[in-house]
Design a protein around this nucleic acid. Structure first.
Lengths: 247, 247
DNA sequence: CGAATATAATAACAAAAGTTAATCATCGCG
DNA sequence: CGCGATGATTAACTTTTGTTATTATATTCG
């Protein structure tokens, strides 16, 4: 059930069988199915408990009055969200699905049990939320400083590596269930320019993208071309010097 | 000593005398002075313990290989940083001062004591870190979706309100110890364009800025003009409908 | 299957923002 | 007091990115 989360956390530290069992059980308590392009929580709502994405893609986003929208974060299988948020009065952003999503709602009580008994697990969960914060910071850098070409390439590297960390890549290929409009709202470009920039990346022989299937043809070259430094993902406990051709 | 932090936390909930005393004492244990434009921690370093800004302005930032720099967050008096980070192997960004800074280093042990005994205080500290995350998300929106005019105005609103939350405003005025180059690196614009945009804000009668003194002449109008919604600062427990003319 | 709809691709043009360079203002300090 | 340095301002020009519109291609669903 919590296979993706477990796999992700094991990038940080080896979990005990007991840790894994506890996580798995927590993920079974209450699960929910949500349709593609539906909201899980809306800005202004009361903050929800902790949600774990079991399957599918979701995102945090914010809409301005005049309709402009910014995707603030992607929530991929194995991602936890809103750890601790119930303290706040109301949500300051929305969370919506991109694809069909299965998620597990984990009660505060369960969280307490998970962290109380298991020191390693507790550390691993802290690690996961620190990485989420680091990703958010990196997005600020990405949108603030990089060119369109770099921004887009950087995003693709990040998504690929995050999917790799949960075992959702096949060789140099992964799913990318995003429209160009969604990509545009992620990196602060217009749809037209995203399209242009994708052509550039293809033209440079760095990526192949057909439908929802993305292939990073030369991950190393792409990382260099867009100044992608994976340090902020903090996967270095095992996954350093990743070879795109392994499974 | 920890006056600004205390003042900030009291935007969230009333602290007991004991809470305040404990915070104040924690802030006295080990303090450090750092010169303007000096680094507190550098990317690649071992993560430091928790630092509390007692006075002055600092920032998180990241530098790309070719020298481009993005300021990722401002650390103002009363701000805490790097809660929990020691779990990570190394810093993925740097922290540097803008002005002279006094900070308190708070040991993990002290943090434990602070949170263990005092439920309210513990909640308030969680609130502070949730707000920091919310600010980071808002920056993504700001840089990703807004025009130069809106971006800059939004930043000024945020800084003013954050300073207000710690009592560092005088009427509609506050300090702004930033060069235009630093502002540029914050909102992803060139220095020249920041200058142009400042002229626009002045021309619209929304701000006055001489040297390091910023005045928001018509806060309401400015907020409307740049679509600034303060909800993400989560100050609503007391400070809603702030009047810029109060002290 | 095939119409309806959503998404992708291009082109032509407009606007926003970046670059370079020069001048002006301020400030610390010998 | 005036030198030197940093920061602010402005101008002229270039580049990047956005806008609008049209066509092509997929996808969905009756």
């Amino acid at each position: 059930m919590a296979e993706f989360l477990i796999r992700k956390l094991e990038n940080f530290s080896r979990l005990s069988a007991e840790d894994r069992r506890a996580l798995d059980q927590a993920a079974r308590q209450r699960t929910r199915q949500i349709r593609p392009r539906d909201d899980i929580v809306r800005e202004g709502d009361l903050p929800p408990g902790v949600n774990l994405i079991l399957d599918g893609w979701a995102c945090r986003y914010k809409t301005l009055e005049d309709g402009r929208r910014q995707i603030i974060a992607y929530l991929l299988p194995g991602d936890l969200c809103d750890h601790g948020v119930p303290i706040l009065r109301e949500m300051d952003h929305s969370i919506g699905t991109l694809t069909a999503v299965t998620l597990a709602e984990i009660t505060p009580e369960t969280i307490r049990q998970l962290t109380a008994g298991h020191a390693r697990l507790s550390q691993a969960l802290t690690w996961e939320s620190l990485v989420a914060a680091a990703i958010q910071r990196e997005w600020t850098v990405n949108i603030g400083q990089r060119t369109a070409f770099e921004r887009l390439g950087h995003l693709l590297c990040e998504l690929y590596l995050r999917l790799h960390a949960v075992g959702l890549t096949q060789g140099p290929t992964c799913e990318l269930p995003l429209t160009q409009a969604e990509i545009a709202d992620t990196i602060g470009l217009s749809v037209v320019h995203v399209n242009r920039t994708l052509q550039e990346l293809r033209g440079a022989g760095l990526i192949a993208l057909r439908g929802r299937e993305l292939t990073l043809l030369r991950l190393d070259a792409l990382q260099r071309a867009v100044q992608f430094n994976p340090n902020y993902l903090h996967l270095d406990h095992e996954g350093r010097h990743l070879d795109a051709n392994e499974t």
